[in-house]
C-alpha cells in the first residue's frame, strides 16, 4: 500500500492522525528549525518523545522536519534538534540544508534522512546528487511536476519519492522564496515563517475588507465574503491595467483522483499538507485518504467523498500534476 504521510502541529493532532489511519506522521519542534514555525504549534522534546512512543505502539512512524536553513552563527540549535529527534526515537528526519545533511550523515548516521521539498530537487540529477552524497532515502518532490515527469524521475533514481496530494499549494519553488521576507522580514528559509499573522492586518474600507501583509494590500473582498489570508503569492495585483491573481488563483491541491496514476509512476508515499490545521481537519482528511489508498491497493474504485469544504473554502485543483501550466 502507498504510505500516507500526515501532518501534526500538536500532540493531539498526531494522535488523531494515527487513529484515523496515518502510516506516518510528520511534525517539528517549536522553533525556527522547521518550516511551520507558527505560534502555539509544534512539539517540545518531551512531547515528541511521548508522541513517538504512542505512534510506534500503533505501528505508525514519526518523521521530524528540520527543514529550514540555519543562519551563519546559529547552527547549534539545529544540531541540538537532530540529537533530540534521534533521542526521541524519530524514524526519519526531513532536511534541506546541505551543511545540515552533511552533519546528520556524519553525526547521526543511523537516523534515516529524507530530503525536504525545501531543497527544491525537481530533476533526477539533483535528486541523485543528494541521494548519493548524503545517503538520502526519500525525496519529497516539489509541487511543480506532472505525473509523467514523476514517472520519468523514478526511472532514473534509487531513492523513494513522496508527493503532496492535498492541502495548501506553494506556487513558488520552495526553499527559494523570499517574498515573505521582503514584505515582513520573516523568512521561510531562515525562520520557518511565511506571512506571519503578526504582520497581517485587516481593515474595513467602505464595503470591502482589505487584507494587508507588512502594510501592503494583498486582497480586497466584499465584507460579506470570507477573506483569504494575505500571502504575496496568492495576492491580487495590478499589471498593465489588469487586476487579478497574477501568480495563482487561491485554490487548494486535491490530487485524490491521481493516486492510481501516482502509484503507477512509482511514488512511495503521499503527503498531506497542513500542520497548522486542527485535529478534526487532520482526522477527516486522513480518513478519506486512507480509504482512497486502500481502495487503490485492492483495485476497487476510488470512494467518493467531499473534502471540498475543508479545502480552505476554495476549489480543489490537481495542481501541476495535470499539466495545465505549460
Amino acid at each position: 500500500m502507498m504510505e500516507l504521510v500526515c501532518p501534526a502541529g500538536t500532540p493531539a493532532a498526531l494522535r488523531a492522525a494515527v487513529e484515523a489511519g496515518a502510516h506516518s506522521v510528520y511534525c517539528g519542534f517549536s522553533d525556527e528549525t522547521n518550516a511551520r514555525n507558527f505560534p502555539g504549534l509544534n512539539f517540545s522534546t518531551e512531547e515528541l518523545t511521548e508522541a513517538v512512543a504512542g505512534a510506534h505502539k500503533r505501528g505508525a512512524k514519526v518523521l521530524v522536519a528540520l527543514n529550514t536553513f540555519p543562519r551563519a552563527g546559529g547552527e547549534k540549535l539545529w544540531h541540538q534538534r537532530l540529537a533530540d529527534a534521534e533521542a526521541a526515537g524519530a524514524d526519519a528526519v526531513i532536511l534541506a540544508d546541505v551543511g545540515l545533511l552533511d552533519y546528520a550523515a556524519t553525526h547521526h548516521p543511523r537516523l534515516r534522512r529524507h530530503l525536504s521539498v525545501q531543497a527544491a530537487a525537481a530533476n533526477p540529477d539533483a535528486i541523485n546528487f543528494y541521494a548519493e552524497t548524503f545517503d538520502v532515502k526519500r525525496v519529497v518532490l516539489p509541487r511543480v511536476l506532472t505525473v509523467q515527469e514523476i514517472a520519468e524521475i523514478n526511472k532514473e533514481i534509487d531513492a523513494e519519492t513522496e508527493v503532496f496530494v492535498f492541502g495548501g499549494l506553494c506556487v513558488m519553488a520552495e526553499g527559494r522564496c523570499s517574498l515573505s521576507s521582503y514584505a515582513t522580514g520573516k523568512s521561510p528559509n531562515m525562520n520557518g515563517v511565511c506571512s506571519p499573522a503578526s504582520h497581517v492586518a485587516y481593515a474595513e474600507e467602505g464595503n470591502e475588507l482589505a487584507a494587508r501583509l507588512g502594510g501592503f494590500t494583498i486582497n480586497r473582498t466584499p465584507k460579506d465574503r470570507p477573506a483569504p489570508y494575505p500571502t504575496l503569492c496568492k495576492g491580487c495585483f495590478t499589471s498593465e491595467n489588469q487586476t487579478g491573481h497574477v501568480f495563482e488563483d487561491p485554490v487548494s491541491l486535491d490530487a485524490r483522483h491521481l493516486i492510481p496514476a501516482l502509484a503507477k509512476a512509482g511514488v512511495t508515499a503521499l503527503k498531506i499538507e497542513g500542520r497548522q490545521r486542527s485535529r478534526a481537519y487532520v482526522a477527516e482528511v486522513v480518513r478519506t485518504f486512507r480509504a482512497a489508498v486502500e481502495a487503490v491497493e485492492e483495485g476497487r474504485p476510488m470512494p467518493e467523498g467531499a473534502l471540498a469544504r475543508l479545502a480552505e473554502g476554495q476549489a480543489g485543483t490537481a495542481g501541476a500534476y495535470a499539466k495545465t501550466w505549460r
Binding site: M172, A173, C177, S178
Partner: peptide, 21 residues
C-alpha cells in the same frame, strides 16, 4: 532588484493569457 522567488510557471506568459510553451 532582488530575486525573491522562482517558479515552474511563467507569470509573464500567464499575465498575457498564454502558457509557458
Amino acid at each position: 532588484r532582488a530575486s525573491l522567488a522562482v517558479s515552474a510557471r511563467c507569470y509573464h506568459a500567464r499575465a498575457h493569457g498564454r502558457t509557458k510553451d
